[in-house]
């Protein structure tokens, strides 16, 4: 309703303007960050490692990445269509899930396997819970876990043959590699059992700059750290999760007599700690909750790595702690202002 004042007839023009005023609840300004922009920046953080892995692994790596993303994005669109919901593939979250999954897969898989993995990640990892924000487990890791238990032979041996990165291998490592074709983590397990003797320091250089025996995203520890730097500079993730996760693994590995630096660089620890454990949806909301989550991930990783038959423990450690997240959130509520602390008597 507009009140015109009789003594000022020249207001008519303004009254028309006023009819178009928007009303709404405060705040009247909003931050420019959106879900799509956050997902976009995580993808940007993954680009160095993605491109380097394609350079090292060639066409087979590229196929895995493309198929995984295609499976994830297509499944998201189809399921949202079936649920009569708006299709939100433009928020980039399905694309990110597909890319994350691909980076945790070996580079020489049959083409259909990453496709199935991407579809499973979205269908069973995310949409079945109600879509973005509602899933309990990290969707990419759900996809990987299903592939791992279904085709574990492919998932643990499809490493690169004659990769370009082999040039950075030291002679000692090369001679072992020619015989076993095992992952450094497995080789070191043999060393620990006394069946082999090899210093883990020989693995440092390949693990940092070009690692042929591992999943796509494990190709270079250095580039994973570059990605983490992007996430931290853009303030997208809480530093506590990667730091507490990695430090826990280092300390526990050192206690049981493993080389702590090797424990960090080998396997999927760095990638998992930087890009999987930090997934918003599946880790606790409060700072101390995140610390508990990260330390828990670290403990379980070491247990699975060295005291189970699994080749690596990061994936199941994160999935297990994902399941614990609602419980952690329940007990790690922040203390509200004005409640709990005793009022000072003066």
């Amino acid at each position: 309703m507009i009140m015109a004042r009789e003594d000022k007839p020249d207001r008519d023009e303004k009254l028309e303007t006023e009819e178009l005023l928007t009303i709404g609840v405060s705040p009247h300004i909003r931050d420019t960050d959106t879900t799509a922009r956050i997902m976009g920046w995580v993808i940007v953080a993954l680009l160095p490692i993605t491109f380097y892995s394609i350079y090292i692994g060639g066409l087979s790596t590229l196929i895995v990445i493309v198929m995984s993303i295609a499976g994830a994005v297509a499944t998201e669109a189809v399921i949202q269509r079936l649920r009569h919901m708006p299709v939100t593939i433009d928020d980039l979250s399905a694309l990110l899930t597909g890319l994350l999954l691909a980076l945790t897969l070996p580079p020489r898989l049959p083409f259909w396997m990453p496709l199935v993995g991407g579809a499973v990640a979205i269908a069973l990892g995310k949409q079945v819970f109600g879509g973005l924000g509602h899933n309990i487990f990290n969707p990419a890791l759900v996809g990987r876990a299903v592939l791992f238990v279904s085709w574990s032979k492919y998932m643990t041996t499809s490493w690169l043959v004659n990769p370009k990165a082999a040039v950075v291998n030291t002679a000692a490592v090369k001679s072992i590699d020619a015989v076993t074709r095992a992952t450094p983590l497995y080789t070191m397990r043999l060393v620990r059992q006394g069946t082999l003797s090899l210093s883990p320091s020989g693995y440092y250089r390949p693990l940092l700059f070009g690692n042929p025996w591992g999943c796509i995203g494990e190709v270079s520890a250095l580039l994973i750290l570059v990605g983490l730097a992007v996430l931290l500079v853009k303030r997208l993730v809480d530093w506590r999760i990667p730091v507490y996760f990695v430090v826990t693994v280092m300390v526990l590995s050192w206690i049981i007599g493993m080389d702590p630096l090797f424990a960090v660089l080998s396997g999927s620890l760095l990638f998992g700690a930087c890009f999987m454990a930090t997934d918003y949806v599946t880790n606790p909301m409060t700072r101390w909750g995140k610390v508990i989550f990260a330390v828990g991930c670290g403990i379980i990783t070491v247990l699975l790595r060295f005291y189970s038959n699994l080749p690596e423990g990061v994936m199941f450690a994160i999935l297990f702690m994902n399941g614990m997240t609602p419980l952690i959130d329940r007990y790690m509520k922040p203390r509200p202002y004005g409640h709990g602390r005793a009022v000072s008597e003066s």
Binding site: M1, I2, M3, R5, K14, T17, E18, L20, L21, T22, I23, G24, V25, S26, P27, H28, I29
Partner: peptide, 20 residues
């Protein structure tokens, strides 16, 4: 283009429907 006319600040202010 007319948007919001707010009494107070951008975070807690009240949007007005008229400039009167």
């Amino acid at each position: 283009e007319p948007g919001k006319l707010v009494m107070g600040g951008p975070m807690m202010g009240l949007a007005q429907y008229t400039a009167q």
